[in-house]
Amino acid sequence: MPTSNDLGNISRLSLRPLITCSCTICGADFEKAEGSRREVCSFQCKAERSRRYSRKYQADGRRVLAEFRSRFDGRDPTDEEILQLLDK
């Protein structure tokens, strides 16, 4: 087993065992350190994942806003009305 002096400046995180996973965007197999939260294989897939997430987030926001407006006859609710909804 190498000592820390033999490894120089290598982080302890890089010594974790590698596992093979599938990319959530393109399905390609890639290796990541065990315990890593990485879900994609490349920068291109990371950008695509970000684009998909932001579109979903924006669509959810538009849906919630439409529901709010439908509850208040097409107008934006006041701060007091929003607080009343949150208290329920």
Rank of each mutant, 00 (worst) to 15 (best):
M1N: 08
E80V: 12
Y57A: 02
T3S: 13
C21P: 03
E48T: 06
C41Y: 00
F72E: 08
S4R: 13
C23G: 01
D87R: 13
R71T: 06
R51D: 11
A59F: 03
N5C: 05
G74C: 05
F43N: 07
E39V: 02
I19S: 11
R69P: 02
E31T: 08
P17F: 01
K56E: 14
E48D: 14
D73Q: 04
S14I: 08
K56I: 13
C45V: 00
D29C: 09
Q58P: 06
S11Y: 03
Y53P: 00
S50E: 12
R37H: 06
R71E: 03
R63Y: 09
F68W: 12
G61K: 03
G61T: 06
E39T: 14
S50G: 05
M1S: 10
V64N: 04
A59H: 04
D60E: 05
R51T: 09
R55D: 12
R52C: 09
S36G: 05
L18F: 13
Y57E: 07
D6T: 06
I25D: 02
G74H: 02
I10S: 03
R38G: 01
E48R: 13
L83N: 06
C41T: 00
E81H: 01
K46S: 15
I19T: 13
S70T: 04
I25G: 07
D6H: 11
D6R: 14
D60T: 03
K46T: 02
D87G: 04
E48S: 07
D6Y: 12
A47D: 12
L86M: 12
I10D: 03
S36H: 09
D60M: 07
L86N: 09
E48C: 02
S14A: 11
D87H: 10
P17V: 04
S54D: 06
R16I: 01
F68G: 02
E80N: 10
D6K: 10
E48G: 00
E31A: 05
A47Q: 08
S70K: 12
D87Y: 05
L18N: 06
G61A: 11
L7V: 12
L86G: 05
F72R: 13
I25E: 11
E34L: 14
R52K: 14
S14M: 15
S42V: 00
A66Q: 08
E34K: 15
E39D: 13
P77R: 13
D6V: 08
S14R: 08
R63W: 13
I10V: 15
D87T: 06
D29Y: 07
S14Y: 12
F72C: 09
V40W: 05
L7K: 11
A28D: 15
T24G: 01
D87S: 04
S42T: 14
A66M: 04
P17N: 09
R62P: 01
I82S: 12
K88T: 10
L18M: 11
Q44W: 04
K32V: 08
